[in-house]
Amino acid sequence: MIYLILTYVFFKIGLFSFGGGYAMIPLMQAEMEYFGWMSSTEFADIVSVSQMTPGPIATNTATYVGAKVAGLLGATSATLGVSLPSFVITLIIAPFFDKFKESKIVKWILKGIRPVTIGMIFSAVIFFAQTSILKVQYEKLFDFLTILFEDFSKILQIDIPSIMIFILIFILSLKFKLNPILAVFISALIGIFVF
């Protein structure tokens, strides 16, 4: 039964994958939270591991979660589930390659979806910040009601070492085009010494 659930959940994630791994972080996080399969910190860690290991973030997360929840067979079900939509949809599209390329409706749909995926990547930044830079007192810091009715200084504290690492890596990769793998190693090294 758990194998079927894993396949189903990751099939859904694969089916709504647009715009690459980072854009999928909010979607995967929503599902992980719903099923209670991983804490947000653990999920952030596995995304971080995906920066250093080969392979797409979505399949890496599927394999990891599957293994954690139900061992080797679980890992296989989840990975199969996340890859299946890719497989089926690509095979359906492949024979109609040229028609698909010219279709106006497809173009319009994509023009609507692409900005959504960019919004999702910015949400992924907030999610990641909540696991590192921001020390959060409440579960839903960014909940609309929390912001309206709670004392913000009480629930939001900034972690000084984390924000230093964040600023350093931000400047290095935006201005000096630092390699992401190197960025991960530098962050890990600083992490060992400052925390």
């Binding site: 960019i118 590192s132 830079i133 984390s162 690492i165 935006l174 962050s187 890990a188 925390f195």
Partner: peptide, 24 residues
């Protein structure tokens, strides 16, 4: 390991933000 990952989470936050800005 825990401290290394705490550092990496902060670093990856920056990496994702850079990607988001470039795409935007």
């Amino acid at each position: 390991i825990q401290n290394a990952f705490a550092g990496v989470r902060a670093g990856v936050t920056a990496l994702i933000l850079v990607t988001a800005i470039k795409l935007a």
